[in-house]
Design a protein around this nucleic acid. Structure first.
Lengths: 241, 241, 241, 241
DNA sequence: CATGAATGAGAGTTCATTCAT
DNA sequence: AATGAATGAACTCTCATTCAT
């Protein structure tokens, strides 16, 4: 069965095609992209801008970032920004789009059949949490911007929804195999449990960041063990003491 | 046992004294409040400003609110604002402080002893979710501002922590009574499960707001039943079903 | 009978009520004016801005005028501009509105009955040309802005139309009295002859300005005599010479 | 006798040599032209730019036209513009120069001797108005740019002056032949009457453009008849009615 | 010659904060 | 205490012009 996901926190390891399985068309800043540069030089500048944008966004936050901070970081003129993007939203969309692959966890995908459900669940959670930790700054950024720009709230929602649906299918499978509590609605349970894992990830990797000295330096393996155990319990996996 | 809580979403039904039981000193905008007005007229103006601020914040969001929007709504001059507050943060602190009482759920508090744990849990969740729903706009505001102003991120964290600790004590009690799985760490479990409920509340009452026509019009009782069931399962309450 | 007018050059000596007799509603920048200042200080600042705007517009032209040129001239901060106007168009509208009275020629109005038509015509032309000369810089400004901003093109058109209609009535009267050629359509003739006078005025007072040393320093009385003579001839006033 | 002309509106049917008969040297953008392209390819590009410029200028107006709009329309790179022109003014000069021939009316020229003055005048006016109508968009452009660029104001003035002088000669001829009122100064009368016709043309073909549905769809023949009649009357042509 | 990305000065606009009345 | 006009720093975006390829 698959990993958890997040309606709230959105960024995850779902395979791209699943995300695209959404019916609704993608939102503005992701589609209204300007034409890609034709020359090599152009491609280099654009790449420099996206890279600089990610760095500055992650460092200063979306709102405190001035367009000139980005161009300064990319060592190009203020006006050059507008050759590739129309505004701050659009660079951010480019940053997120570019980071998508990196946000996918290796493989996992669909594990079926005779596999030990508990082991699969644990591996899935570990992969999700590892990916979250790797991209923690970007996740923090996405959370911030989702509070401020409707387009990105929508973006986050879609990613989360894809995850939730995937996990819901996994839960339904397990119910069919008699491994999971048939009393719970798969979709509702998926919402709750996927959300649980993403909140834990957010707290551990975003909020506790730089707070390690303050006591409990979140232990990664303990985190994996806890969420897996609770998830399994919540679905009433049998026989695991 | 007590209600759940939220590290992420913070606003909850914990009694005030528990929040204040934090060791760390309270944060700036909540303490550096100006002296309360001496005259009656002053008290009236200040109250009008706080009321107006809440209305405008909830309607337009923290960031899109200009100070003059607030004074206009309060029907007073722009300059008057500075008689009572030094900036936007400070009015917001006042708004939140004033709303605190209203955010508490009626009673519930500590249910002890021979009570049916499942029933207590359910009642607690219902109370929490009802309070969240009542103050959904304010919760949305707090989430937004926590992404933007460190002082309010801290405020949210404290409220969440108090909840989590309280729920952790409840879990430990249940473990002692043999009602809950002793394998899980009470604190970790509380973080996860409290977070789970708050995410569900956020999704249902903030994000889905105005989306009812789009299909799943979150059923309140179903929500209560689901989170309670998952929570009980996760802690392996015995014998139910 | 009344003076000439101009479809092209618009600004004229028509009495206000005649202009308002237009059916169509007045155009944007003239109506969407911000609320007038309540305090005396505000009134002073606004007046200073309008005065400064007129000066700078007349000196530098509409297009080359920067908002800061106006505020500098008015000795106030850049931001103060926006307390009273939303943009350059709006100050210009204020300037024109304020100048309207000044643009009216003393009286003249409807001269009726037994008066010598030629004398009336001449007095009327003299008054029109004098008013034009007095406000030459403003007329130049209006011509410029009419080429650039549709709202002011419309403004110019309305003023011109009012004049043309008035003169057309005068021509019709003269035809009825047997003083004017009945072959011409009063409206068409008014368009042509009113236009003729306004072009002469524009050439003499706007284009030839500062060119006096270059030879023909337009003689005012000669101008009056010429247009009056041509106008009278064109309508075939009887018996004169 | 010759056609009318326009001091204000300048573009007309005067023969080129008459324009050049001005004493003053021609103005900047018309002389400082870059060397013509040597290669065929260069000639093609230059021609494409001039053609594109005319199209875009007429469509968007001089001020709203960006250099890149022109190069885009000409399907060439932004930089190529500077191979042939130094700035916007210079392309416009090229556009106008290229259009000159097209602006001439077929023939007419000098009609002398025993011809019926009224018929000649009418034919001349018809030719002028037809040429104006054919090139209305360009005339509108010239009016606009004359308000904004001194060089083109001068250009317009010269064209108008040539016309006025030519018509003044015609009037003097008629006075000598006893056909026209000797009281009027030929030059002044020419200014007034030439201006009259050009204003009518401007109103009919530029300002009323696209306004036909709004009522009076300027009838071309009526226009010709009116201005001819008024012109003839103004000069007191004998015998006709 | 052609290309099209890079440049950067400059304009408009917003709004928190101050302060004279 | 209340008022509301005044302030000016800060930021975004445009586009003519240059220049390396």
């Amino acid at each position: 069965m698959a990993s958890d996901s997040s309606k709230v926190l959105g960024m995850d390891s779902t395979a791209p095609e699943e995300i695209d399985s959404e019916k609704a068309p993608p939102v503005a800043p992701f589609t209204q992209l300007r034409e890609p540069p034709t020359t090599q030089r152009g491609a280099r500048t654009r790449a420099a801008l996206v890279k600089a944008a990610r760095k500055v966004f992650e460092r200063d936050g979306y709102l405190d970032t001035r367009l000139t901070d980005i161009t300064k970081e990319a060592r190009c003129a203020a006006g050059s920004f507008y050759t590739y993007f129309t505004n701050k939203e659009e660079v951010l969309a480019a940053v997120l789009l570019e980071a998508q692959e990196d946000m996918m966890h290796p493989g996992m995908g669909r594990v079926q059949g005779a596999d030990d459900p508990y082991a699969v669940l644990e591996a899935s959670n570990r992969a999700y949490l590892a990916a979250y930790r790797r991209n923690a700054k970007l996740m923090a950024l996405l959370e911030q911007v989702a509070q401020v720009e409707p387009e990105f709230r929508e973006f986050r929602r879609r990613r989360g929804d894809a995850f939730i649906r995937r996990n819901a299918r996994g839960i339904a499978d397990l119910q069919a195999r008699g491994v999971a509590d048939r009393e719970v609605d798969p979709m509702m349970a998926s919402r709750a449990l996927s959300g649980m894992v993403s909140v834990m990830a957010y707290n551990a990797f975003v909020l506790s960041e730089g707070q390690e000295e303050e006591g409990a330096p979140v232990d990664f393996e303990e985190l994996v063990a806890t969420v897996t155990r609770l998830w399994a319990n919540a679905l009433r996996f049998p026989g695991h003491r």
